[in-house]
Design a protein around this nucleic acid. Structure first.
Length: 414
RNA sequence: CGGGGCGUAGUAUACCGGUAGUACACUUGCUUUGGGAGCAAGUAGACCGAGUCCGAUUCUCGGCGCCCCGACCA
């Protein structure tokens, strides 16, 4: 797309009401806009990156057998009363509203209840199991304190996957597959090296859960890492001797670090299937409760984590896999001169080839264009200047490393 | 929810109990063009409410909003 048509503008100054690096840079580069505390809009560039992240998650979840759905945000209190989670004392992050007739509705903060109730119509036999159902859907959580830019917000998209198994053994297989899918996802978005599968407390459903924690100084969580095994232990279970017995991790080998929770996986057991009557008939015709798990990733938080980890003093730095465009084509020409014509031509050709390119065709100084390009952080920049006009060879600069490769037109179009 | 800080043009900031200043952005004109260009002119601002005062953007109180630390994060 032509940058002259992009409605967002970059800013030289960081917003006064943001301290977090992720929010400062994303606002400055025009990726997001804050509506209020903990509530952010995604603008064209931000939405592109968010959708790249979502696309990667979708591919990996589909690869392990996930079936995508889209459930509603408005929730019937009845199903929540059955699981005991309607009460504000039990779940303190509720946003609730009412119909015109005065009856209560909830705005979904998670979807165990809704999906479990739904699946009672589709799971009847052991032949219907296992199932893995997921969605990308808006969650509302009335956090007492939103903070850290887009890392902890009151409204956010979450990928939530739910697994339905006939027993614990079948569940364990799905659980491990989901964990491996998560590792691939975090590797593909560029934070794999710093992300550790982490033992954490399991809440009220199981002894333990796993979190995926990305080491970062600005993280909220404290974890203890075994670098050899590439595993970690959350501080909340650090003093539990059973963890070491189960995992074989040597407590003395661990190193402490701050980390961001970019994903989590839970064994739910039969809590929700019991509450909502989700059973199946085994081979003998006996009704048994379905064994469940849930698996979450917040694509927005992943995006924020990438910013926290990879950006530099000039701005955002996107890995190619999640860059809003493949190329940032920066023309140094003016008013229809030869440089502009060469850049125009290259843009049109790339566009026809379906290559994702943001074309800076604006009438601005070179310095300003480079500064904007650095700030936006598209992974590769093509610079069109005098030299390109004569030679048809273009400078391609890697945003992360700053290294330049002279690339002929034909190669750019392949 | 406890503690602390802060609300001034689109953005970032300054000063002041008596006509609110600067920079960036924006508009117009001329010059400039490989790392945030120059000159000139122009548009644009005190969160809301009450109180004190001759006079409040400034002081006091209340509300609303934003940030940070802590608690919380099923």
């Amino acid at each position: 797309m032509r940058q002259s048509k992009l409605f967002t503008k970059t800013r030289r100054e960081a917003p006064a009401d943001e301290v977090a690096k992720n929010a400062q840079l994303l606002v400055r580069a025009g990726f997001i806009h804050k509506e209020m505390a903990g509530v952010y809009d995604y603008l064209p560039l931000g939405l592109r990156t968010l959708n790249k992240i979502i696309g990667i998650i979708r591919e990996e979840i589909n690869a392990i057998g996930g079936e995508e759905v889209f459930l509603t945000t408005l929730q019937d209190p009845e199903i929540w009363k059955k699981s005991g989670r309607w009460d504000d004392v039990v779940v303190d992050v509720w946003f609730k509203t009412q119909l015109k007739n005065g009856s209560d509705l909830g705005l979904a903060n998670t979807h165990e209840e809704a999906l479990t109730a739904l699946m009672t119509e589709h799971i009847a036999s052991y032949k219907d199991l296992p199932r893995q159902v997921y969605q990308f859907q808006t969650k509302f959580r009335n956090e007492t304190r939103a903070k850290s830019g887009i890392m902890r917000t009151r409204e956010f998209i979450m990928k939530d996957l739910y697994s339905f198994s006939k027993d614990e053994k079948q569940h364990a297989e799905l659980y491990e597959k989901a964990a491996q899918a998560y590792e691939k996802i975090f590797a593909r978005v560029g934070i794999g090296e710093k992300t550790y599968r982490t033992f954490a407390s399991g809440g009220s459903f199981s002894k333990y859960s796993h979190e995926f924690q990305t080491v970062c100084d600005t993280g909220e969580d404290t974890i203890y890492i075994d670098t050899d095994k590439r595993l970690a232990i959350n501080k909340e279970v650090y003093d539990d001797p059973e963890v070491y017995a189960t995992t074989g991790i040597d407590k003395a080998q661990l190193t402490e670090a701050k980390a961001i929770e970019v994903g989590n996986i839970f064994t739910l057991s039969t809590k929700y299937s019991d509450a909502l009557g989700l059973t199946y008939k085994d081979a003998e015709g006996i009704a048994l409760p379905v064994f469940m798990g849930s698996y979450g990733i917040g694509p927005g938080r992943v995006m924020g984590t990438i910013v926290e980890l990879l950006s530099d003093d000039k701005g955002l730095v996107w890995p190619a896999s999640v860059s809003p465009f493949t190329y940032h084509l920066v023309s140094l020409g003016h008013n229809g001169d030869d440089i502009s014509k060469t850049a125009d031509e290259l843009y049109e050709d790339m566009f026809k080839e379906g290559i994702e390119v943001l074309y800076d065709d604006r009438e601005l100084s070179a310095g300003q264009k480079f500064a904007d390009s650095d700030l936006i952080g598209i992974s590769k920049r093509i610079v069109v200047g005098r030299e390109a006009v004569a030679s048809d060879i273009f400078e391609v600069v890697d945003r992360a490393t700053g290294s330049t490769v002279k690339t002929p037109r034909t190669e750019l179009l392949s």
